[in-house]
């Protein structure tokens, strides 16, 4: 049914069923994905605008009399265990968590895609080396090694954390891109381009890459959600963002100090927990819609 409508539409417009076009339709037809997308855009805009309005000093301003203080007018979400305003912490923390996950996902996507593209396209010993490296990384207990590295780096910042995590997560993207590139490279259009004298780099970037772009984008989206989870977990354990940078994981870590007061002092962790779930849920819904779009595209091709 979907395929049929795709065919007729493309015949009218003359363009091939582009990935974004199908994504748009997939998202439009999937209520959850559509609501998720609208909601997520609004949420991100709100978080980023609100976080940019926050007074940088206010983020770390400690009010010792208000430690774990309950919500009050002007401080709708109360105070955290250090006596900082929870609403500010939430907004800035959400911005930090999202930006970090996005940064890592972007770095992994760029490097992983490039490496996978090279390995899959050239095959032979290039591929062999890359795959051995990828195999090696995938047998590492990543979380543990990241924790050790973070604990060894004397003065680390947000940027360090992003690079450390990216260094251990790129190979998932590389593996996927490599498999898809290998598949494409065996198709005759690549052979045809070679016999027509097109240089390899041009075939890779202008012909193979556009044909696997949809999968790369799907992967990027789903990675974003996954990496938010990773960052949260690391920070929860105390090996993520430094204390001075608020993050959603840090709020969850605060919950651990509460013990049986977990429920009564809900404002310390519940908003962050809900925000994480909601954001990851939305991203997953959108990613799944993208995924379906990418599949349909392949069936037509």
């Amino acid at each position: 049914m979907t395929e049929f409508s795709e065919m007729t539409q493309t015949a009218e417009s003359g363009r091939p069923p582009s990935f974004f076009r199908i994504c748009r339709r997939e998202i439009w037809s999937d209520k959850f994905a559509f609501i998720s997308l609208v909601f997520l855009v609004i949420l991100f805009l709100y978080i980023f605008i609100a976080a940019s309005q926050v007074d940088p000093d206010g983020v770390v301003r400690v009010n010792l009399r208000k430690i774990n203080g309950s919500p009050e007018p002007g401080h709708l979400l109360g105070f955290d265990p250090s006596g900082r305003d929870m609403y500010t912490q939430l907004i800035v923390g959400a911005r930090n968590s999202v930006s970090i996950a996005a940064g890592i996902a972007a770095i992994c996507c760029i490097f992983g895609t490039l490496i996978g593209l090279f390995a899959g396209f050239f095959g032979g010993w290039v591929d062999n080396i890359v795959m051995r490296v990828v195999d090696f990384f995938s047998m590492l207990p990543i979380l543990m090694i990241v924790i050790v590295i973070v604990s060894l780096i004397p003065s680390y910042t947000v940027i360090t954390l992003v690079w450390v995590l990216a260094a251990f997560y790129w190979m998932f993207d590389a593996r996927l891109t490599r498999a898809k590139t290998l598949q494409q490279s065996n198709l005759d259009y690549v052979s045809a381009a070679k016999t027509l004298g097109t240089p390899n780099w041009k075939i890779m970037f202008t012909q193979v890459l556009p044909n696997i772009a949809s999968i790369v984008i799907v992967n990027l989206t789903l990675n974003l959600a996954g990496l938010m989870g990773v960052e949260t977990g690391l920070t929860f354990l105390g090996f993520g963002l430094p204390f001075s940078s608020p993050s959603l994981g840090a709020h969850l870590a605060n919950a651990r100090t509460l013990g049986p007061l977990l429920m009564t002092r809900w404002w310390i962790w519940l908003p962050s927990a809900l925000l994480i779930v909601i954001m990851m849920l939305c991203i997953n819904f959108i990613g799944q819609a993208f995924k379906r779009a990418a599949d349909a595209r392949q069936r037509i091709g």
Partner: peptide, 23 residues
């Protein structure tokens, strides 16, 4: 399963602990 994919272990634990262990 969508919720399960979107919920980090810590978050679920933070929901379950007060309910099943404390309350």
């Amino acid at each position: 399963s969508y919720f399960a994919m979107a919920t980090p272990t810590i978050v679920l634990a933070l929901f379950l602990i007060p309910l099943f262990a404390f309350r």
